[in-house]
Amino acid sequence: MDVLDRPEGFLMVAAVLFVIGVVGFILRRNLIVLFMCVELMLNAVNLTLMAVARYVGASMEGQIMVFLVMAVAAAETAVGLAVVIAIYRKRATVDVDDMTVMNG
């Protein structure tokens, strides 16, 4: 059976990408890398949306959703990077383990 006729292949790729994102988020300390891990997870979710909508619902709603997620991700990146720059200007580091001002 062709892998393109079923959603499982895409879904598995998405799952693997998502887990990589999560593990990266836990492993790494560089704020920008964490940021990229989040993007990766978003991307994995996009893949899932596409696959499920395409193969289960045979609808384009998944694509619309992916489009909207992309727009939101763009906004998120812009703001997030501005925050990163602001933090760097103030503390001269992007190591999240140094950013514990909010601890209890």
Partner: peptide, 30 residues
Amino acid sequence: VAIMQVLVYAGAIMVLVIFVIMLLRADEAS
């Protein structure tokens, strides 16, 4: 959507990220 992925993620978001990395020289700092 594929083209938008290239345009938005690869062409805009990641360029921005790289730009910021270069701006901060963050690799060396940490």
